[in-house]
Simulated scan of single mutants.
Amino acid sequence: MKTVFRCVPSLACTLALFASLIAAAETFADEPAQLAGVSEAVHKFVESKEIAGAVTLVADEKQVLHLDAVGMADVAGHKPMRADAIFWIASMTKPVTGTAVMMMQDEGKLSVDDPVEKYIPELAELRTRDGKKANITIRHLLTHTSGMAEISPEEARKATTLAELMPVYAAKPVGFEPGSKWQYCQSSINTAARVVEVVSGMSFVEFLDKRIFGPLGMKDTTFYLSDEQLSRLAKSYKKTGDTLEEADLFILGGKKPTSRDRFPAANGGLFSTAGDYARFCQMVLGGGEFGGKRYLKPGSVKLMTSIQTGDLKTGFTEGNGWGLGWCVVRKPQGPTEALSPGSHGHGGAYGTQAWIDPEKKRIYLLMVQRSNFPNADASDVRRAFQAAAAR
């Protein structure tokens, strides 16, 4: 028996129809538009096997303007890339660490000009190679001008907490007078995160969850994936000749993404989605406020996202300076040509990239997982995405 419903013209029927139209409009509004040319620009690199797949996102302070997934998350498993795919974002973790430090400065618990030894006594004996005392400040840590030495992969595998890393760092000589040179430094960022632990009384994981990720609704941003999140992790690849082969995530040191038997790598250990990281960027673009909640003072956002390294040559592409955990575009060129001066963000080792353009009020996010770009910060994929997205 087939039941047919007829709507007799009435006020109730008219209101029901109106309500359904509103619901449909709201549903459509929740589905971000696709900006012309962005997906096509990135898909060319899928077809040429430069990458297996990608997620692209463009947003302003209030809403997502573009979100799309192209290619495959798992080539052998025939799994298409999804918009909510999870990526190892590597050094895109560093701006999060810088933000955590600035939150503590806003609360009066530290100053970025404080000596690091004030909070981590083990580092009081740090010396340069010629035996001089290394007077390292938190500012030096976040601008990659500390000169601190790196640890070996074996030393990293043994540590399960940030606290365990400090004596290892303390035993190594500083490479140059702090503040005199820019040299990309993983140990300094992890040290900055340890300072956050000391002054907040929380583990770095707990701090980020309670103060940043939870309030911002970044439900898929973590150092340690759940089993469900693991099922959405995009596989990493390296290009060998004309083919793509699966690649390991070296940050894990041979351990699983779900394993908690490793320290929370504040220098580059986070996993995230495009949607999650966009929320973080929207907070920063909003001057430290998002969804009616303030996370940072506007002055603190300006400080950390403006150049703090003077005339020092910095970065892996030309025309950039460094803020407090952030790369800052001084003179747009090459892969940053489509951005405005003062744009800030960070890339990741496997090709991910986030830029915030404060002049255009735009956020640009590219999520890919390829391990052996000749220079991930200057990859052709990144150039093509940026040029298309910033039109």
Rank of each mutant, 00 (worst) to 15 (best):
K2G: 13
C13Y: 01
T27S: 10
F28K: 14
A29K: 13
S39T: 12
V42K: 06
K44S: 14
K44E: 15
F45W: 03
V46E: 11
S48N: 09
A52M: 03
G53E: 01
V55K: 07
V58Y: 08
K62M: 03
Q63R: 15
V70M: 08
G71T: 07
V75N: 02
G77I: 04
A85G: 14
F87H: 05
W88F: 00
A90T: 01
M92E: 12
M92N: 07
G108A: 06
L110E: 10
E117S: 14
P121R: 08
L123T: 12
R127P: 01
R129T: 14
K132Q: 15
T137M: 03
T137D: 08
R139M: 02
L142T: 08
T145I: 09
E154N: 07
E154I: 12
A156S: 12
A156L: 12
T160E: 15
P167C: 10
A170T: 07
A170D: 03
A171H: 04
V174E: 10
F176T: 05
E177K: 13
K181P: 00
S188L: 02
V195L: 06
V196W: 02
M202V: 00
K210S: 10
P215I: 00
L225Y: 00
R232C: 00
K235E: 09
D242M: 12
E245G: 00
A247N: 02
D248G: 06
L249T: 09
K255Q: 13
P257N: 13
D261T: 10
F263C: 03
F263Q: 04
A274D: 08
D276V: 05
Q282C: 02
L285E: 11
F290D: 04
T309I: 06
G315L: 06
G319Y: 07
W322F: 15
G323I: 08
G325F: 06
W326L: 13
P341Y: 07
Q353H: 12
P358V: 08
P358Y: 05
K361L: 01
I363P: 03
F373K: 14
D377W: 04
D380L: 04
V381A: 11
R382V: 05
R383G: 01
R383T: 14
A388H: 04
